[in-house]
Nucleic acid binder design. Sequence first.
DNA 1: TGTTAGCACTCGTCCGATTTGAGTGCTAAC
DNA 2: GTTAGCACTCAAATCGGACGAGTGCTAACA
Lengths: 350, 350
Amino acid sequence: MDLSERKQKILQVIIDEYIGTAEPVGSRAISKRNELGLSSATIRNEMADLEDMGYLVKPHTSAGRIPSDVGYRFYVNSLMQKYQLGVEAIEVLRRELAEKVNQLDTLIKKASIITSSLTEYTTVVTSPMLSRSVIKKIDVLAMAQGTAMIIVITKAGFVKNRMISVDITEAEATRITELLNRFFSGVMTDEIDENSVIMIASAAVESGINPKTVQTVLSKVYEFITALDECDVYINNARSMLQYPEFADVDKAREMLDFLENRDNLIKIIENGHNTDGVGIKIGKENNAKELENSSLITVDYRLGSRSLGKIGVIGPKRMNYAKVIASLDLISGHIDKILEELYSNEGEG
Amino acid sequence: MDLSERKQKILQVIIDEYIGTAEPVGSRAISKRNELGLSSATIRNEMADLEDMGYLVKPHTSAGRIPSDVGYRFYVNSLMQKYQLGVEAIEVLRRELAEKVNQLDTLIKKASIITSSLTEYTTVVTSPMLSRSVIKKIDVLAMAQGTAMIIVITKAGFVKNRMISVDITEAEATRITELLNRFFSGVMTDEIDENSVIMIASAAVESGINPKTVQTVLSKVYEFITALDECDVYINNARSMLQYPEFADVDKAREMLDFLENRDNLIKIIENGHNTDGVGIKIGKENNAKELENSSLITVDYRLGSRSLGKIGVIGPKRMNYAKVIASLDLISGHIDKILEELYSNEGEG
DNA sequence: TGTTAGCACTCGTCCGATTTGAGTGCTAAC
DNA sequence: GTTAGCACTCAAATCGGACGAGTGCTAACA
């Protein structure tokens, strides 16, 4: 079942060609390029074999052939040449990322934008998972009459806030804040359980705060902390889909954009689409989503130390420039990892 | 130059029809609806007049006629019937907005989503302008080695944060935080000038903090506060463009989506497109943007008290359902105003 | 004078037939 | 094993006629 050297060569030429043009490629076109020095008839025979073996398919009798999912998979695994990004591209990336790195979410969004412009495909990034973050500080602020605000800051520099409805005085808020920080500052979010909340509650009540207020605030705080890991996803450059002939049909484009709009689904696909080691590549049906049958998804982790915080993914037509996308993602995730490492090297250990 | 009763009637029927179908409407179709009891020939004569007067245009000789920008403008100003939103729609809106109103930006984003689903057009909202906000609290936190975070919370419940590079100890950060709040808490952001910063700086230096650290932190804080009013814009349901025949051509759709992606431009258009009183309606070329020549933009303010915080806009084809969009925006902005009023009734006065 | 029936004319769209051309598979010869 | 050659296939492009929606104009009518 192994492919002869020559078949591999031909398959590679076909896929390279198809990636460039999106047109089925025929035997004559290949033989003309005479890298192989074979006549079109010979190529035809080989192509027929490749089709039998499942690497190619014919859209119809009198068209050329296009790669099947299997063909792409073989290409990605065995044939593809490593892509070398241009020095200017690398330079731009370095410069852009250096500019405003000091906000974790800004950094991620920026990374997404850069990836889009580097690859010209749609980029999706998941926001950093905060579930295993260390709390730097919690604030409870009395705001307008009957409302208060909870602010949680993690060591990694992530700030989340939420308003709650509760009658509370500034003094009470300050006191509760004090207690919260005494117990929770420096603690990892998923180590916080109801017991710790109860301890704080009794301490607060002892210091004379209305038990009902304490109860309301602390249950909201607890709820908020446990909900911190809600994963969000940013989509970038979705409109780029429209530039590829695969989506020349407005209905196709609409289907894809509708799919992208469904965040939950998208997150699921991105999380699924990933094997542990570095880059995850899902081709066509491998994505297990009808809407992505004609598309591929490539993902990488971005990490803090050994811990994966989230993912950056690129979605494009199945005939995407895999080598370039992989190179881009590799480069950018490497950069992010380094930046995060520098910024928060003391985070992440209990 | 006035339009006779009958011409107005005819114009109205034509526009109503065209809004529904996107097809040029002919004289026969109108006469068939016999609301007017006129023959097609008579209608034809009237339509020819309306064309001469600039209210209608012909795509080509043997098609019906479609409204011109002038025609739409007349329709919007004089002919359009008030649209009554369904009770279920109103109920949904009320319920949705009630649910998680406690975050200003969440509220606005949600409003945008609701508007999209109510109107089925693309919605753009500008984030609340913070320039004339009252500061509730400022925090400076020492984070990882060599970095600190500035957090500003406004009375209206807006939280913004930024990381900065500076060598600072926790004690120093706490001290600076104390001073910042003593001077700035309760102050409106645009009342803060360099003098106040200098005062804080000297106080901080007096209390023994490294002058260089003080200088770095305070200049960053000042920079941050003055940059608070950077206006952002959220786009919702852009893909809905694709469902209208106006954008059946992928290139047209692409042009529009490209335009929407250019945030600066978009903000400019939205801000321009607004006259002070309530709803702003810009039809086609009135938008002063090539990309919007075939689209209309309707905007409303959302307010806190009398102060406009930002805008909600709807972009759709020129033949959009103006009455419905206006009714929706009216309703939703009214709701938001009320919610904001309730939440932050004590904000906004120096 | 305003309205309408009638008619010639325009012009985009639809539809079927034809042509074109890229590409294939097979065969026979080298 | 390779290749030239040829018949065959089939989507896409081209062409042309029919169709029909719609117009403008004219003449007749109330």
